[in-house]
Nucleic acid binder design. Structure first.
Lengths: 225, 225
DNA sequence: TTATGAATATGACATATATCATATTTCAAA
DNA sequence: TTTGAAATATGATATATGTCATATTCATAA
């Protein structure tokens, strides 16, 4: 199994602040796991026994609304940690994590992480910093949900995915989502999402190849009202 | 001026984890200030030079949407800290803080807080814990905004205020908000808020005395769809 | 007390979005 | 390759909510 102290993935998250010895200790108790597309990593309500470091792939963090619909709160990619919030506040997880493609994740037991959180201020501070960023993003999402139209939210979601996760060689968005996933991100009906995508096509803002989406007028998308 | 080490307010926030010496140091550099109803404590985009501890009163944290409307993200009351997120991520604040009634706040300079964040793990961890709670609440708000009707969101807001901030002796909600404030919390037009409040009155879920609101059927409000 | 502007309230209408029905396409399994 | 289920697409219609106009009430200063 790979060694944490040599793993380049940790550069992208708070684990980078840990010392060589701390990383070796983690390396000795961590477990690695392959998660197939569609598989659940953890589910809302689970009590987590540790956190996950994503070595490969993408997953969605979702929350079930009381009306039975799933809301996607965040997309999480290679390099990021998931499960910290629940560990820190010592509660069951408030979100489910579901793989959007085949993934490889490392599981680090709670005891090891909590130990580092108690002894390594730099680590704690970095986790805090990341959470502060998450909170700011959440605030932005609240405003968007409350104040913007479905058209605007879909345009911004496409731009967000383009800017943060990039495109494939053919120009299509590298994160492949179903229309239903898009609907669950922007908080609307699947049909509405499909309809607005059709409008965007007619307006030459995007093209689609099957379920793949290619942005052809990024500036135009930014101007969508 | 009051002394932090003797102040009971700190029991309600992360400052409680600080040592006597740390509190005395803070006490020596903090400043106290009265904020009148409607006054701005800080504004979106400001770079904060410290954090605020609320000794008395209530304020709203708002964010301006690109369409020009204010969204209220959170109500903050006596005992809580504001400004930590911005300090931690070393960015300008992403929210404005506006007094909803006359307040008394203490300002603690950045340098002092950052010093404690670097040296006192218990303090850092407690700030982290609070932020984890904020993040969870934000996730809940996102789901509500995305999936629930204005009617449901207003009902839940009334319940939230009732449960978290209580009522006066006459039974009216102790946090007094304008209809516009309610609209800005639930992300709707002021007229819609007023209309739904009228419906609630007709359905004997609430009564109003001027702008004051009194819940008369809490269970009924919980069942609103 | 009266006067005046702001907040609250309500109606009429416009519009965005949801819902339900039904094609059509895509893709994987047989 | 064929087949069937799931995903995508589009139409028709219902409904919630926004917008604009206009009363009405309330609070506060003069």
């Amino acid at each position: 199994m790979g060694k944490c102290e040599q793993c380049i993935i940790k550069q992208f998250n708070s684990l980078k602040t840990l010392s060589q010895e701390e990383l070796i200790r983690i390396s000795e108790c961590k477990t690695s796991r392959v998660v197939k597309k569609g598989e659940v990593i953890f589910e809302e309500g689970d009590s987590l026994k540790g956190i996950y470091c994503i070595r490969e792939g993408i997953c969605k963090l979702t929350k079930l609304s009381s009306n039975g619909k799933d809301q996607i709160i965040k997309l999480v990619v290679k390099g990021e940690l998931i499960g910290q919030r629940s560990l820190v506040s010592d509660e069951s997880v408030n979100l489910s994590a579901v793989a959007l493609n085949d993934m490889e994740v490392c599981f680090i037991p709670k005891s090891e992480i909590m130990n580092d959180l108690q002894k390594n201020t730099a680590f704690t501070f970095d986790v805090l910093k990341e959470m502060a960023m998450d909170l700011k993003e959440a605030d932005d999402i609240i405003v968007n949900m409350a104040q913007k139209s479905v058209r605007q939210r879909l345009a911004e979601t496409l731009i967000y995915i383009n800017d943060n996760f990039g495109t494939k060689s053919d120009g299509t968005l590298s994160v492949l989502l179903s229309r239903e996933d898009f609907a669950n991100i922007i908080g609307t009906a699947t049909e509405s999402t499909i309809r607005v995508l059709s409008q965007f096509k007619k307006e030459d803002l995007i093209t689609t190849i099957g379920k793949q989406i290619k942005i052809i007028d990024l500036e135009g998308l930014k101007r969508v009202e």
